[in-house]
Write a protein that binds this DNA or RNA. Structure first.
Lengths: 157, 157
DNA sequence: TATTGTTATACTCTATAACTATA
DNA sequence: TATAGTTATAGAGTATAACAATA
């Protein structure tokens, strides 16, 4: 039975019940775990979450422009520059001027980029499977549905 | 009517199905929404998520030490310094040396701090209610349970 | 020797204004 | 004038090493 100021004797378990009432707090804590695990899964490929996301989107959408990629990733255009730069430097994607609009660049994954993306995807899938293994299908689907509604509630709310 | 390179003709909806398969990606997107809403709710009180979290924990745990607060918040000790500094500067919490261990500081919320915490808590609760209103109780409880298991899976996994 | 709080530092992610070259 | 990509910059959040005071 801890007793502040003088005591605080053992207190290895701080009372965070006031915070645990909040969805956002719970989500932050579990997202930290997910993100750390994802970073670990991507490390062998020298990818970060942002570069992995960008690479995957370019692989799935050949010819994508940077502005479209930025919008899809919910990232400001200036912040995408270094991400694209890094992927180009590593020969994972290439940039070509769009003939009909010489302001724009069209992004293409290289063969190497597609291969790395496939390998990284496999690794990430395995990591998530290990991390979420304790959750049955119903619970996982429910959580995903809840997250989808929250995301889509942005424009409504 | 934009027409990127060869294909990607209309593409206002980029194909992100390869990413949406990942729990981490879904979670990042919805967490961004939650976090932005939380920041909005806290802005009138000039609190950030981190200062709100710290304040709430000190209010709930009078006499808490910085090292315990850091551990509870999952923040490195050096990063807590400015957070505590800010709350002390605003007279929301106070630091007292622990008599029995003069290395440590014991944190106490001031009356003003407890009042601001209560008001902020009310605002955050209302914001979350509005944002999560579309989710029925079962779905919300399921999502929270899933997030708890993910967080606790860190040590197991 | 180990621990509490601190300083200094650096890296990532994010956000805004202003520039360039095209349209 | 508007847009695509860029530069420069600044602010958060986070992580590590090293220090002074104390245990």
């Amino acid at each position: 039975m801890p007793d502040a100021l003088t005591a605080t004797d053992d207190v290895h378990h701080v009372d965070d019940s006031a915070l645990r009432a909040f969805f956002g707090y719970r989500m932050k804590r579990s997202f930290n775990v997910i993100q750390a695990d994802l970073a670990l899964a991507l490390k062998p490929f020298e990818l970060r979450m942002l570069t992995f996301t960008a690479l995957t989107l370019v692989v799935s959408n050949p010819g994508l422009r940077q502005s479209q990629l930025a919008e899809a990733m919910d990232v400001e255009r200036p912040n995408l520059v270094t991400i694209v730069e890094e992927l180009v430097r590593r020969d994972l994607i290439s940039k070509e001027r769009v003939p009909t609009d010489r302001r724009a660049y069209s992004l293409q994954a290289t063969r190497q980029g597609r291969m790395l993306c496939a390998e990284a995807t496999t690794a990430v899938t395995a990591h998530e499977e290990a991390l979420l293994g304790g959750l049955d299908e119903e619970m996982r689907a429910g959580a995903i549905e809840a997250m989808n509604r929250i995301e889509q509630g942005r424009q409504r709310g």
